[in-house]
Simulated assay, not measured.
Amino acid sequence: MFPWRHSAQAELEAMMHAHVDDRAFPCVGAKAALAKGTLHVLACNRIDSSWDDLRIHDGLMRFAEAYRDDPGLFRSFAVVFEGPDDLGEPAFEQALWKRIQSLSDKDVWRGQDYDARVSADPDDPHFSLSFGGEAFFVVGLHPHASRPARRFARPTMVFNLHDQFETLRAQGRYETMREKIMVRDEAVAGSRNPMLARHGTSSEARQYSGRVVDDAWRCPFHYSGSAEQ
Protein backbone atom coordinates (compact mmCIF):
# COMPACT_ATOMS: atom_id res chain seq x y z
CA MET A 1 0.00 0.00 0.00
CA PHE A 2 1.33 3.44 -0.94
CA PRO A 3 2.16 5.66 2.09
CA TRP A 4 -0.52 8.22 1.19
CA ARG A 5 -3.09 5.48 0.84
CA HIS A 6 -2.12 3.97 4.21
CA SER A 7 -2.55 7.40 5.82
CA ALA A 8 -5.95 7.90 4.17
CA GLN A 9 -7.07 4.42 5.23
CA ALA A 10 -6.25 5.11 8.88
CA GLU A 11 -7.87 8.56 8.82
CA LEU A 12 -11.10 7.63 7.02
CA GLU A 13 -11.52 4.39 8.94
CA ALA A 14 -11.23 6.29 12.23
CA MET A 15 -13.74 8.88 10.99
CA MET A 16 -16.27 6.21 10.03
CA HIS A 17 -15.90 4.35 13.31
CA ALA A 18 -16.35 7.56 15.30
CA HIS A 19 -19.42 8.49 13.24
CA VAL A 20 -21.13 5.14 13.82
CA ASP A 21 -20.18 5.19 17.50
CA ASP A 22 -21.83 8.61 18.00
CA ARG A 23 -24.95 8.33 20.17
CA ALA A 24 -27.03 10.22 17.60
CA PHE A 25 -26.29 7.77 14.77
CA PRO A 26 -29.52 5.79 14.37
CA CYS A 27 -28.51 2.52 12.68
CA VAL A 28 -28.26 -0.08 15.43
CA GLY A 29 -27.10 -2.69 12.91
CA ALA A 30 -24.01 -0.64 12.04
CA LYS A 31 -23.35 -0.09 15.75
CA ALA A 32 -23.52 -3.85 16.29
CA ALA A 33 -21.07 -4.40 13.42
CA LEU A 34 -18.68 -1.84 14.92
CA ALA A 35 -18.88 -3.52 18.33
CA LYS A 36 -18.19 -6.93 16.76
CA GLY A 37 -15.29 -5.65 14.66
CA THR A 38 -17.15 -6.52 11.46
CA LEU A 39 -17.54 -2.99 10.07
CA HIS A 40 -14.95 -3.09 7.28
CA VAL A 41 -13.75 0.21 5.81
CA LEU A 42 -11.97 0.77 2.51
CA ALA A 43 -10.50 4.22 1.85
CA CYS A 44 -10.71 5.39 -1.77
CA ASN A 45 -9.94 8.49 -3.79
CA ARG A 46 -13.04 10.08 -5.37
CA ILE A 47 -16.61 8.88 -5.72
CA ASP A 48 -16.84 10.63 -9.09
CA SER A 49 -13.87 8.69 -10.48
CA SER A 50 -13.38 5.05 -11.53
CA TRP A 51 -9.83 5.07 -10.16
CA ASP A 52 -10.53 2.62 -7.32
CA ASP A 53 -13.33 0.54 -8.82
CA LEU A 54 -11.24 -2.63 -9.16
CA ARG A 55 -10.07 -2.31 -5.54
CA ILE A 56 -13.69 -1.86 -4.44
CA HIS A 57 -14.86 -4.86 -6.41
CA ASP A 58 -11.98 -6.94 -5.04
CA GLY A 59 -13.12 -5.96 -1.55
CA LEU A 60 -16.73 -6.89 -2.27
CA MET A 61 -15.67 -10.29 -3.65
CA ARG A 62 -13.62 -11.02 -0.52
CA PHE A 63 -16.44 -9.76 1.71
CA ALA A 64 -19.01 -12.02 0.01
CA GLU A 65 -16.71 -15.04 0.14
CA ALA A 66 -15.94 -14.49 3.83
CA TYR A 67 -19.64 -14.30 4.60
CA ARG A 68 -20.35 -17.59 2.83
CA ASP A 69 -17.49 -19.24 4.72
CA ASP A 70 -18.67 -17.90 8.07
CA PRO A 71 -22.22 -16.46 7.97
CA GLY A 72 -23.04 -14.05 10.74
CA LEU A 73 -25.20 -11.03 11.40
CA PHE A 74 -24.18 -7.40 11.40
CA ARG A 75 -21.44 -7.06 8.83
CA SER A 76 -20.97 -4.00 6.65
CA PHE A 77 -18.47 -2.96 4.00
CA ALA A 78 -18.06 0.83 3.95
CA VAL A 79 -16.25 2.46 1.03
CA VAL A 80 -15.23 5.95 2.18
CA PHE A 81 -14.00 8.39 -0.46
CA GLU A 82 -11.68 11.30 0.25
CA GLY A 83 -13.86 13.56 -1.90
CA PRO A 84 -15.32 15.52 -3.38
CA ASP A 85 -17.07 17.01 -0.36
CA ASP A 86 -19.09 19.65 -2.21
CA LEU A 87 -21.61 17.44 -4.04
CA GLY A 88 -25.29 18.30 -3.67
CA GLU A 89 -27.83 15.50 -3.46
CA PRO A 90 -28.46 15.11 -7.23
CA ALA A 91 -24.71 15.12 -8.02
CA PHE A 92 -23.98 12.62 -5.25
CA GLU A 93 -26.77 10.37 -6.49
CA GLN A 94 -25.36 10.49 -10.02
CA ALA A 95 -21.83 9.63 -8.81
CA LEU A 96 -23.12 6.81 -6.60
CA TRP A 97 -24.97 5.14 -9.48
CA LYS A 98 -21.96 5.50 -11.78
CA ARG A 99 -19.87 3.60 -9.23
CA ILE A 100 -22.60 0.97 -8.86
CA GLN A 101 -22.84 0.53 -12.64
CA SER A 102 -19.08 0.20 -12.97
CA LEU A 103 -18.86 -2.31 -10.11
CA SER A 104 -21.71 -4.37 -11.54
CA ASP A 105 -20.08 -4.38 -14.98
CA LYS A 106 -16.88 -5.69 -13.38
CA ASP A 107 -18.88 -8.42 -11.67
CA VAL A 108 -20.16 -9.51 -15.09
CA TRP A 109 -16.68 -9.25 -16.62
CA ARG A 110 -15.32 -11.50 -13.86
CA GLY A 111 -17.97 -14.13 -14.57
CA GLN A 112 -19.92 -13.76 -11.32
CA ASP A 113 -23.51 -15.01 -11.23
CA TYR A 114 -26.26 -12.67 -10.06
CA ASP A 115 -27.74 -13.76 -6.74
CA ALA A 116 -30.83 -15.74 -7.80
CA ARG A 117 -32.70 -14.75 -4.63
CA VAL A 118 -33.15 -11.18 -5.90
CA SER A 119 -33.98 -9.39 -9.15
CA ALA A 120 -31.47 -7.52 -11.35
CA ASP A 121 -34.24 -5.21 -12.59
CA PRO A 122 -34.18 -1.92 -10.61
CA ASP A 123 -37.91 -1.44 -11.25
CA ASP A 124 -38.72 -4.78 -9.60
CA PRO A 125 -39.81 -4.64 -5.92
CA HIS A 126 -37.40 -7.55 -5.29
CA PHE A 127 -34.37 -5.74 -6.74
CA SER A 128 -30.98 -5.85 -5.03
CA LEU A 129 -27.47 -5.49 -6.33
CA SER A 130 -25.24 -8.54 -6.59
CA PHE A 131 -21.48 -8.83 -6.24
CA GLY A 132 -19.58 -12.09 -5.98
CA GLY A 133 -22.88 -13.98 -6.04
CA GLU A 134 -24.27 -12.22 -2.94
CA ALA A 135 -27.05 -9.65 -2.90
CA PHE A 136 -26.27 -6.23 -1.43
CA PHE A 137 -28.21 -3.16 -0.32
CA VAL A 138 -26.34 0.18 -0.53
CA VAL A 139 -26.61 3.12 1.85
CA GLY A 140 -25.15 6.40 0.58
CA LEU A 141 -23.73 9.01 2.96
CA HIS A 142 -22.33 12.44 2.16
CA PRO A 143 -21.83 15.91 3.70
CA HIS A 144 -24.88 17.57 2.10
CA ALA A 145 -27.54 14.90 2.66
CA SER A 146 -30.89 16.35 3.69
CA ARG A 147 -31.51 13.54 6.19
CA PRO A 148 -29.17 13.84 9.22
CA ALA A 149 -28.78 10.04 9.35
CA ARG A 150 -27.26 10.15 5.84
CA ARG A 151 -24.89 13.03 6.63
CA PHE A 152 -21.18 12.24 6.89
CA ALA A 153 -18.03 14.27 6.27
CA ARG A 154 -16.96 12.20 3.27
CA PRO A 155 -18.88 10.59 0.38
CA THR A 156 -19.49 6.97 1.39
CA MET A 157 -21.14 3.83 0.06
CA VAL A 158 -22.05 1.26 2.71
CA PHE A 159 -22.71 -2.22 1.32
CA ASN A 160 -24.94 -4.43 3.47
CA LEU A 161 -25.66 -8.09 2.76
CA HIS A 162 -29.27 -8.75 1.79
CA ASP A 163 -29.08 -12.20 3.37
CA GLN A 164 -28.67 -10.59 6.79
CA PHE A 165 -32.11 -8.97 6.51
CA GLU A 166 -33.62 -12.32 5.55
CA THR A 167 -31.96 -13.95 8.55
CA LEU A 168 -33.39 -11.28 10.84
CA ARG A 169 -36.85 -11.87 9.34
CA ALA A 170 -36.52 -15.62 9.89
CA GLN A 171 -35.55 -14.98 13.51
CA GLY A 172 -38.50 -12.61 14.02
CA ARG A 173 -36.14 -9.71 14.78
CA TYR A 174 -36.40 -7.61 11.62
CA GLU A 175 -39.50 -5.54 12.44
CA THR A 176 -38.29 -4.72 15.95
CA MET A 177 -34.91 -3.62 14.67
CA ARG A 178 -36.42 -1.63 11.80
CA GLU A 179 -38.76 0.22 14.17
CA LYS A 180 -35.91 0.99 16.55
CA ILE A 181 -33.89 2.54 13.72
CA MET A 182 -36.85 4.58 12.50
CA VAL A 183 -37.59 5.90 15.99
CA ARG A 184 -33.95 6.91 16.47
CA ASP A 185 -33.89 8.54 13.02
CA GLU A 186 -37.09 10.46 13.79
CA ALA A 187 -35.59 11.73 17.04
CA VAL A 188 -32.69 13.25 15.10
CA ALA A 189 -34.53 14.47 11.98
CA GLY A 190 -37.91 15.38 13.48
CA SER A 191 -39.75 13.16 10.99
CA ARG A 192 -39.66 9.62 9.66
CA ASN A 193 -37.80 8.95 6.43
CA PRO A 194 -40.45 8.86 3.67
CA MET A 195 -38.20 6.78 1.42
CA LEU A 196 -37.94 3.72 3.67
CA ALA A 197 -39.88 0.69 2.47
CA ARG A 198 -39.76 -3.02 3.15
CA HIS A 199 -38.06 -5.21 0.56
CA GLY A 200 -40.70 -6.55 -1.83
CA THR A 201 -43.07 -3.59 -1.58
CA SER A 202 -41.11 -1.18 -3.81
CA SER A 203 -37.66 -1.15 -5.36
CA GLU A 204 -34.93 -0.50 -2.81
CA ALA A 205 -33.00 1.39 -5.53
CA ARG A 206 -35.03 4.46 -4.56
CA GLN A 207 -33.41 4.44 -1.12
CA TYR A 208 -29.73 4.10 -2.00
CA SER A 209 -28.67 7.74 -2.36
CA GLY A 210 -30.80 9.06 0.51
CA ARG A 211 -32.41 11.73 -1.67
CA VAL A 212 -36.19 12.01 -1.56
CA VAL A 213 -37.48 11.08 -5.01
CA ASP A 214 -40.98 11.05 -6.49
CA ASP A 215 -42.81 8.49 -8.61
CA ALA A 216 -41.30 9.92 -11.79
CA TRP A 217 -37.77 8.96 -10.71
CA ARG A 218 -36.10 6.29 -12.82
CA CYS A 219 -33.07 4.29 -11.72
CA PRO A 220 -30.10 4.73 -14.10
CA PHE A 221 -28.75 1.22 -13.42
CA HIS A 222 -28.87 -1.48 -16.11
CA TYR A 223 -27.49 -4.95 -15.46
CA SER A 224 -25.23 -5.89 -18.37
CA GLY A 225 -25.15 -9.64 -17.74
CA SER A 226 -27.63 -12.36 -18.59
CA ALA A 227 -31.23 -11.61 -17.67
CA GLU A 228 -31.71 -15.22 -16.60
CA GLN A 229 -31.77 -15.69 -12.83
Rank of each mutant, 00 (worst) to 15 (best):
Ala95Ile: 05
Ala95Pro: 09
Trp97Asp: 09
Trp97Asn: 07
Lys98Arg: 15
Ile100Pro: 00
Gln101Tyr: 10
Ser102Ile: 07
Ser102Leu: 08
Leu103Phe: 05
Leu103Glu: 03
Asp105Gln: 14
Asp105Lys: 14
Asp107Tyr: 08
Asp107Glu: 13
Val108Glu: 01
Val108Ser: 07
Trp109His: 14
Trp109Phe: 15
Trp109Glu: 13
Trp109Thr: 14
Arg110Cys: 11
Gln112Phe: 14
Gln112Ile: 02
Gln112Trp: 12
Asp113Ala: 13
Asp113Met: 05
Tyr114Pro: 08
Tyr114Leu: 06
Tyr114Asp: 04
Tyr114Cys: 03
Asp115Met: 05
Ala116Ser: 14
Ala116Tyr: 06
Val118Cys: 11
Ser119Asn: 12
Ala120Ser: 15
Ala120Asn: 13
Ala120Met: 10
Ala120Ile: 00
Ala120Val: 01
Asp121Arg: 12
Pro122Asp: 09
Pro122Ser: 11
Asp123Leu: 07
Asp123Ile: 02
Pro125Ser: 11
Pro125His: 12
Pro125Ile: 07
His126Gln: 09
Phe127Ala: 04
Phe127Gln: 03
Ser128Asp: 01
Ser128Glu: 06
Leu129Val: 06
Leu129Thr: 03
Leu129Ile: 06
Ser130Met: 09
Ser130His: 09
Ser130Asp: 05
Phe131Trp: 02
Phe131Thr: 00
Gly132Asn: 10
Gly133Gln: 05
Gly133Leu: 03
Glu134Cys: 15
Ala135Leu: 08
Ala135Asp: 05
Phe136Ala: 03
Phe136Tyr: 13
Phe137Asp: 00
Phe137Met: 09
Phe137Pro: 00
Val138Leu: 10
